[in-house]
Computed example of a mutant assay.
Amino acid sequence: MEKSYSYPLNADWSTEELTTVIKMFQLVEDAYEIGASREAILKQYRDFKVIVNSKAEEKQLGRQFEAESGYELYQVIKTAQASDRQTIKLLER
């Protein structure tokens, strides 16, 4: 499937920070498209929160990503936190 959207990024982030945030959004995509490891999602979210430590910024990035891709960061995190399944797979809308 050809993706024609961009990730919401902050120009002030370092290359390492950009990589961490992009990996988080890639896991969100995977959770909708093919399924993603619950453990990987939760670990990446912890790393993501070091960079995006304010709830407001997290919500803003999540909304931007959802507008671009149709995939919800919040829903993936909430599902991973509440589940004991090894693989998180959400249905696309």
Rank of each mutant, 00 (worst) to 15 (best):
E57L: 15
A80K: 02
V52G: 03
E17H: 10
R38A: 00
Y32V: 01
K55R: 14
P8S: 07
Y5M: 05
V21M: 02
A67C: 07
Y7E: 01
E92Q: 15
S14Q: 05
Y45L: 09
S4N: 10
F48I: 13
E72H: 11
L18F: 14
E2N: 12
T79N: 01
I41E: 02
I51Q: 00
T15Y: 05
Q60D: 11
L91D: 12
R38L: 00
E68Y: 10
Q75I: 08
Q44M: 04
E72F: 09
A11E: 14
E72C: 13
V28M: 00
T79D: 03
R85A: 15
K59M: 10
R38K: 06
K3E: 08
I88S: 07
S83H: 07
T79M: 05
E68G: 15
T79H: 00
F25R: 00
E58N: 07
E29D: 09
E33S: 08
Q44W: 00
F25S: 00
A67F: 14
T20P: 01
A40N: 04
E39D: 13
Y71L: 12
A31S: 06
T87I: 12
E16H: 10
V50S: 10
D84T: 12
E66A: 09
I41G: 00
I51F: 01
Q86F: 11
K3I: 13
L73S: 03
R93F: 14
Y71F: 14
K59Y: 10
M1F: 13
R63M: 11
Q44P: 00
S83M: 11
Q44S: 06
Q81R: 13
E92W: 09
Q26I: 11
E33M: 07
Q64Y: 14
I41M: 07
E2M: 08
F25I: 02
T79G: 02
V52N: 01
E57D: 11
I22P: 06
E29Y: 03
A82N: 11
P8F: 05
E58R: 09
A11N: 13
K43N: 15
D84F: 14
I51M: 02
I51V: 09
V28N: 01
R38F: 03
I22F: 08
E16A: 07
L27E: 05
V76F: 04
K55W: 10
